[in-house]
Amino acid sequence: MLEAANRVARMNGKPPYFTVRQLTPSQALAPDAAAQLVILPGMGLATEREVRETTQTVQFATLTDALVKLAAPGTIIAGSCSGCFALGQAGLLDGRVATTTWWLAPLLKTMYPRVRLNSRDIVVEDGPLVTAGAAFSHIDLLLHLIERFAGFAVAEDCRRFMMADSRPSQLPYLSVATLLSAAPDLQQAELFLRRNIRRQVSIAELAAACGMSPRTFSRHLQRVTAMTPTAFVQILRVTEAIRLLRTRGLTADEIAARVGYADATALRRAMRKRTGRTLDSFRE
């Protein structure tokens, strides 16, 4: 992606925007290692066990030491997917708004509680820190960085040349069932809500479906999913609305009725709150 930006520059008779060096963590610890932009890719870790085991290794400690050294004033640090755990271990997420791949987001919050987690967006920027979700969100991250360093026009050219669509939200890809896979008791809340999705459902009803008090349910749900009960309900309704939009060809009012909102206006408000987008923008 950075080379694509450099090609756009050459096409327009300008010098390249980026000079790229690939460094191992050990090389990054060298006294002369410095950069305006540091990009840490994902590390191929997909489960809690893989993350926890990796963060205990000597190699991971070297990586976090390198990140601390490179994070000098004026340097942008970018990471994606499981790479965000290295940013957390280095203390770079403390007090910052950040994201990661949606199914590891609760673990990130558990391991680094000072992060201000935003698991909704694919790319999140907070000062010198830029984070992104999983796999193909690397493309979104690079386009975001190209726009920051080279301008919107260059980033848009790169998007078109690489045929990369704009995907600001992770929600269409989020699976509540996957988030709850390690918590069978909470799965009963999801099942109850799906069966009653056309009507308003109280937190007390969801808690009762799990055999818990509302307070215990809220605390357990927050630990497993990094969501409040209200966010849990809204996200399940919103993701179901997106599915219906893409598969049934229904109107906004019809979709709103099927997912428990009084009308299309109420659904639009929920969509804006949870995705930052309109429902219609999710049509494929």
Score class of each variant (00 low, 15 high):
Pro41Arg: 01
Val97Thr: 15
Ala4Cys: 12
Ala71Asp: 06
Arg159Ile: 07
Leu145Phe: 07
Gln59Cys: 03
Val176Ser: 06
Cys84Val: 15
Glu284Ser: 14
Leu171Phe: 07
Thr57Tyr: 02
Val20Met: 04
Thr57Ser: 10
Asp32His: 13
Val238Arg: 02
Leu104Ser: 02
Ile242Cys: 03
Ile235Pro: 00
Ala208Tyr: 02
Leu250Pro: 00
Ala207Met: 11
Gly276His: 05
Asp157His: 11
Ala105Tyr: 09
Ala78Tyr: 03
Leu141Trp: 08
Thr75Tyr: 00
Arg96Tyr: 08
Arg248Phe: 01
Ala66Asp: 02
Arg243Asp: 03
Pro106Phe: 02
Asp185Cys: 11
Arg49Ala: 14
Leu104Cys: 05
Asp121Arg: 12
Thr131Asn: 04
Arg223Met: 07
Ala9Asp: 11
Glu156Cys: 03
Cys84Phe: 03
Ala155Phe: 05
Arg7Gly: 05
Gly151Ile: 05
Leu221Val: 06
Arg248Leu: 10
Thr24Met: 01
Gln56Val: 08
Lys109Trp: 00
Pro25Lys: 09
Glu284Lys: 15
Ser119Asp: 12
Ser175Leu: 08
Tyr261Trp: 09
Lys273Glu: 10
Met43Pro: 00
Ile76Asp: 03
Thr225Ala: 01
Ile235Ser: 01
Glu205Asn: 04
Ser166Ala: 13
Pro31Phe: 04
Val68Cys: 07
Thr47Trp: 01
Met162Cys: 15
Met163Cys: 13
Arg223His: 11
Glu50Phe: 03
Ile139Ser: 12
Ala78Ser: 08
Arg195Tyr: 02
Ala153Lys: 14
Thr100Glu: 00
Arg7Met: 13
Gly127Leu: 07
Leu63Thr: 14
Leu142Lys: 10
Thr62Val: 14
Ser169Asp: 06
Glu205Cys: 03
Val201His: 06
Pro113Ile: 08
Pro184Phe: 06
Met163Lys: 14
Ser281His: 00
Val233Ser: 09
Gln59Tyr: 09
Ala256Trp: 00
Cys81Met: 04
Leu145Arg: 08
Trp102His: 04
Ser175Gly: 04
Arg7Ile: 14
Thr75Ser: 04
Cys84Ser: 15
Ile76Leu: 13
Pro214Ile: 11
Ala9Ile: 09
Val130Cys: 05
Lys109Leu: 08
Thr100Tyr: 02
Leu267Asp: 01
Val238Asp: 00
Asp185His: 14
Glu48Trp: 09
Thr225Asp: 02
Leu67Asn: 03
Met163Asp: 14
Pro15Leu: 12
Gly74Glu: 02
Val58Trp: 09
Gly88Thr: 10
Ala135Gln: 10
Met163Glu: 15
Phe149Leu: 07
Thr228Leu: 06
Arg223Val: 11
Gln59Ser: 14
Ala34Asp: 08
Asp165Ile: 12
Ala78Asp: 01
Ala86Gln: 10
Val38Glu: 00
Arg114Tyr: 08
Gly44Met: 00
Met1Trp: 06
Pro31Tyr: 07
Asp121Thr: 07
Ser169Val: 09
Phe161His: 09
